[in-house]
Amino acid sequence: MSAALQHPSPRQARLRAARSFARRFRRNPLGMAGLFIGLALIFMAIFAPLLATHDPYAPDFAARLTAPGWNYWLGTDELGRDIYTRILYGSRITIFIVALVVFTSAPIGLLLGVVSGYFGGWVDAVLMRITDVFLAVPKLLLALAFVAVLGPGIVNAALAITLTAWPPYARLARAETLAVRNADFVAAIALAGASPWRIITRHIFPICYSSMLVRVTFDMAGIILIAAGLGFIGLGAQPPLPEWGAMIASGRRFIFEQWWVAAMPGAAIFIVSLGFNFLGDALRDLLDPHAKVRQ
């Protein structure tokens, strides 16, 4: 035991680090709230058919625009569909878009940024100028322009958001790479005969992971908001899909009388994006090396 304490194996060390991380994370109430919201969203998406009280698509004109009550917890929309049920199913679309964007834009940005920082020279100059151009246009606007040519729809919306979301990751990964590019350990690996590709994927990528994770968590909130904005303008998910932004758009006509049609899905967007921001804040406090210096 004492020997293990002095020289923990990598696995033990990792386990210990994870445990201490979990302990510190539990002390952050907002972070815990964010984690809870994120898990609740996933739970809702998986068990939507079990949790639903009505059919998300079938119109029921007798019940149209019913106020929230015993039968319809969050009221019904203009076609008499239960809003609670539609929000449940809408969580699947939200998760789908967020996952698609994150799993494409973060790797693209990571690769471009690390390559740019590691090789430097004209590769760096060209890649960073391209990044600058993409960063020069506000995200929502660029996504709108892409959707305008790609056509509306969930996958196209996710694609458009991806095209706008990668540059900050590239910047971040480049900065992390520049910090370690000339470090002794990289020189040692290179001397040992490792190819640039191996150095990048095995040794530089892992260094970027924690700051990337923080950024991804914050970005999830942004992605949800942009996706909802696209849906609201009418360029994201198309009816009858229960996308939250599109649901707000259809409730806009009834906002002064049947306020719940627009209010409920918006509250769902708000809560979920707030959750991811809480989570991002907590993770940053724990993981970001720059934040640690400040404490």
Partner: peptide
């Protein structure tokens, strides 16, 4: 500040109008 970051601005605008 976090609420301002997280709220869909168009939804907040609709609610404010209401």
């Amino acid at each position: 500040a976090l609420i301002g970051y997280s709220v869909p601005i168009f939804w907040l605008a609709l609610m404010a109008l209401l």
